[in-house]
């Protein structure tokens, strides 16, 4: 055994984390936000709009993208359904329940589906940036220049579609290289939706800048629960209701929490699933002290109170 064999060396075995991206602040150890109206929980609903490459197979293939032999019309057109049909159904349900969606779009979607972006803007919804395309993951195999170019293009496309500078970011497949956070700060972003590690917002270390993490639930992310884990829509809805009940209780007893859901138009926008989306969100909003806010509104409330 060599003393410097890296497999038995633990240079980052120390207090806190084995990285410097954020601090070790478990949920009971840090001040939690005070939401408007003293809400127990903030509800964030993110609606992702993604464009998948038709030929985007391989090791970095995104979840939900074409995976069968090329040309794979079946999987590609299945996703396209979300942009043509599902989105409108989803936005109607959210509007009916008074739930404020945040629409996260990638640059290719802005270019290829301007109608969808117009719809979001016409409904007064915040637009967040969802990378260049579903296939452009952020990872350590990218050079800094490559990653900067991806972010610049995406931020520009979404800001243009929104008519104002974009403030939120969701990476394709929720990936981040070591430098993603500081590049996002460099491009004027205020918050990210990539992490799945908490039930309340917290601050990220981003090269000296301020960046807030609004952690999206991975368990309740519909593509994970329904597509990957093969749960039915009624089972998904039941889990959302269970989560909302506990989060509401904890928020009342211990301080403001976040319930952050992902609603994907090609999946929950299907006619047989949409009633369960409506049922699930109704179970969330029946808690009187759940406040629905856009990503930016939630970040502002968080920053004002902590």
């Amino acid at each position: 055994m060599s003393p410097d064999d890296p497999y038995l060396a633990y240079p980052l075995r120390r207090r806190g984390y084995d990285h410097d991206r954020y601090e070790w602040e478990p949920i009971g150890s840090r001040p939690l936000p005070t939401w408007p109206g003293d809400a127990h929980a903030a509800l964030l609903v993110v609606v992702p709009l993604q464009w998948f490459r038709f030929d985007g197979h391989g090791a970095l293939a995104p979840l939900g993208g074409p995976s069968k032999e090329y040309p794979d019309y079946r999987e590609w057109s299945w996703k396209d359904y979300g942009m043509r049909v599902g989105l409108f159904r989803v936005l109607d349900v959210l509007e009916r329940l008074g739930v404020r969606a945040t629409v996260a779009a990638d640059a290719e979607t802005c270019r290829r589906y301007p109608r969808a972006l117009d719809e979001a803007r016409a409904r007064g919804l915040e637009l967040a940036v969802h990378g260049k395309s579903a296939n452009d993951l952020h990872h350590d195999g990218l050079s800094e220049a490559q990653e900067r170019a991806l972010i610049a293009e995406a931020v520009e496309a979404v800001s243009q579609a929104a008519g104002e500078p974009a403030r939120g970011w969701l990476s394709p497949s929720r990936t981040q290289s070591e430098r993603t956070a500081s590049l996002l700060v460099e491009h004027g972003l205020d918050y990210v939706l990539d992490w799945a590690n908490d039930d309340a917002p917290y601050r990220l270390n981003a090269g000296g800048g301020q960046l807030v993490s609004l952690p999206l639930s991975y368990e309740l992310h519909d593509v994970n629960a329904i597509w990957q884990l093969r749960h039915t829509a009624p089972e998904w809805a039941e889990q959302v209701a269970d989560a909302a009940a506990l989060i509401d209780t904890e928020g009342r007893e211990e301080g403001g929490r976040l319930l952050a859901l992902t609603v994907t138009p090609w999946l929950l926008g299907q006619p047989h699933r949409i009633p369960h989306l409506e049922r699930a969100l109704a179970r969330v909003t029946e808690h009187e002290r759940v406040w629905s806010g856009s990503g930016t509104a939630i970040v502002e409330a968080f920053c004002a109170g902590t």
Binding site: D140, A196, N197, Y218
Partner: peptide, 10 residues
């Protein structure tokens, strides 16, 4: 992908 920040965060 490396690093898998989603799986790590989970």
């Amino acid at each position: 992908v490396q690093p898998d920040t989603l799986a790590y965060g989970y």
